[in-house]
Design a protein around this nucleic acid. Structure first.
Lengths: 132, 132, 132, 132
DNA sequence: GTGGTCTAGACCACC
DNA sequence: GTGGTCTAGACCACA
């Protein structure tokens, strides 16, 4: 799995990392039960501090996306994750902001659909990619 | 227009304010060309810091939603706002994160649609409200 | 409130801090809704690193003992806290270990009771202390 | 004697092993003077590392629960074990933490008693089991 | 002035 | 070799 981190982005590095990992899971580059690289090795691989990686991993455990073993972290083997209440509230909030901005800045439904399909394509499983 | 600010929310107050104002515009409680309350009065009205209101107004000017006059701020009289490049990139990023989380946490299309219609209802024009 | 940290103890500093704060709440030296010292000031007061204090505060928020505001942390104003499932399991585990050790090392019921009353005394409210 | 080790538990394996052995002694599945399985065989039996078993045995010797013979370990034939000072301090500390958490999280005396009787039942001698 | 983020580097516990 | 703990110190966002 390739992780692309933009150090200059406004989005905190640990947040970028969280979504990169989630993406990997959706794309089935990371399977349930699969181990993640160690905090230290991933940190040195992508050139960031180990604490930053650790924070991302811990938050993903908190969300239930990863589980921590005695040695290292792995993708939660259980398939059916659910948002916690607070998380869902934040999700709703984010969606509301998105809709508001779409309305204020006159983003057409067409553009929205294009965006969605573009994103869906990125999240497509790698295997499907080959088939296509 | 009523502005509801939650000081305890994890969302920065200036961000809340920005979206409250955008909401007001969508609901036509604030019309193009209409003046906004002065920084001072709004700050004291909703009991927040003057700098916070100022920051929200400035950012809205930056986005083109408001325009600054010699004295105070008003809603941009021009109707067709468009996102700038950076803004659109952030918008896309936010959408991607939402979709990723929806996929990871198995948010059903049903729930998503419910959320959307719920949000749309909130953004309905006050006039329509009367009709109903 | 006085916080006594033993840097040489086997118990991690942040854990000691957590229990010191809980003690303060039980003794009513910290009341529901009361603000805690800032991460930085507490850290410098007791001569430890700010990240260590921050970790303790965050974990207490996680447990529901503290809540985080825009600015600083405060004791959860709500009175009825409950353990989460995992926490209760750990609690039970700890109790089991304690009972096992008491049995193995022939700790008499008398000694146990003495310990309990001694601990209870420490946790007594300061006000009662004066009365007595 | 059956040893149940949970490799995924957050409790270190050597600690789990220590308490499993103590449990065996309390339940009289392991009698004073009885030999324990060799480090090697136990390690392979329960599928854990050799060093982990060794560490558990060594610590139990340290506590006086086991004694080391020329060849292998056996349960201390002496019946009246006592805690050393440090151990007792740790015991007291653990009890204090338990009491604090019970108070903070409003664990009722009822629940506490239920927990205790539940644990006592687990520690009942196997013979008594038969009687019942 | 508050916490948030990030870095660099050290020592320790567990397996 | 894995994560856990702790320290020191820097820059930033928010109010």
């Amino acid at each position: 799995m390739y992780l692309r981190i933009q150090p200059t982005s406004e989005i905190p590095i640990y947040t970028q990392l969280i979504y990169q990992i989630k993406k990997g899971i959706i794309k089935k580059e990371l399977m349930p039960g699969e181990s993640l690289p160690s905090v230290r090795s991933l940190a040195s691989d992508i050139g960031i501090n180990l604490h930053t990686v650790n924070k991302a991993y811990k938050l993903l455990v908190e969300e239930g996306v990863l589980v921590q073993q005695k040695k290292g972290f792995m993708v939660n083997p259980s398939v059916n994750l659910m948002m916690k209440e607070d998380q869902f509230k934040a999700f709703r909030e984010k969606l509301e902001e998105l809709i508001i901005d779409a309305r204020i800045f006159n983003v057409s439904d067409e553009v929205l659909m294009d965006l969605k399909t573009e994103i869906m394509k990125i999240l497509k499983e790698s295997d499907e990619d080959d088939v296509v």
